[in-house]
């Protein structure tokens, strides 16, 4: 099997949500001399990108997306030590601290954004749900975050998104981070109103938004 075929097989293992195959093809790729960075970027990430597009179009659902991420992580168990041994790094290295804001227990949207960002190469610090403004600020500092991503699903918890930005301003660290918001009741208008850097209408949008904002900042 030539290099191109192996990379395609690796991508297909992700689309087929098959962790055993993904792990085996990753080993085969390394054994045949493919660089681990190329295996990640031209194999695994392409597979995740395909499944992300299918998810965005409503042709597959969350279980398939999560199982693909699971296969991605299985292959990474093989590729990560190789990347480290060769001191190679994937292209995206920005850190995103994300969570659902205070008073809100909804997690699904936040989890999907975390999965898609992680498989796009971002380092993710997931704070979970119902987290206070200060938690976001402190965890972002601890993680040396580039981005703070705030999720909410209820109109009554929207003010908690604003509260995070207000606390960042009050502590004079607002400019250190890109802040993005999302969730059913939010909108671009709301993001502008509270001084966020961006708004993602869907999980797929959120990933594109973070990529765009991070590359613009660099």
């Amino acid at each position: 099997m030539d290099k191109q075929q192996l990379l395609e097989k690796l991508a297909q293992a992700i689309v087929d949500t098959d962790p055993d195959l993904a792990r085996a093809v990753a080993k085969e790729a390394i054994a045949s001399g493919i660089s681990p960075l190329e295996a990640v970027e031209q194999g695994l990430s392409k597979g995740m990108s395909t499944i992300g597009d299918l998810f965005g179009r409503g042709e597959v659902f969350l279980p398939e997306l999560l199982l693909s991420a699971n296969a991605f992580n299985a292959a990474m168990e093989v590729l990560k030590p190789e990347l480290e041994a060769r001191k190679q790094q994937t292209a995206q290295t920005a850190t995103v601290v994300l969570g659902t804001v205070q008073g809100d227990l909804h997690s699904i949207g936040k989890n999907i954004v975390a999965t898609l960002l992680e498989t796009s190469g971002f380092r993710i610090v997931d704070l979970g749900v119902d987290r206070s403004p200060l938690d976001f600020v402190q965890e972002a500092a601890k993680a040396h975050a580039d981005v703070i991503a705030l999720s909410c699903l209820m109109t009554t918890t929207m003010p908690s998104q604003k509260a995070v930005i207000d606390v960042l301003k009050e502590m004079k660290v607002r400019d250190k981070y890109l802040v993005v918001v999302g969730g059913a009741p939010t909108s671009q208008k709301w993001a502008d109103e509270i001084g966020a850097d961006g708004y993602g209408q869907s999980a797929v949008d959120a990933v594109a938004l973070v990529k765009r904002l991070v590359s613009r900042k660099k």
Binding site: Q102, G103, D104, D130, M154, T156, T157, P159, S160, A163
Partner: peptide, 8 residues
């Protein structure tokens, strides 16, 4: 005029 925040 105070926003009604959940849990507050």
């Amino acid at each position: 005029g105070i926003p009604v925040m959940a849990g507050s």
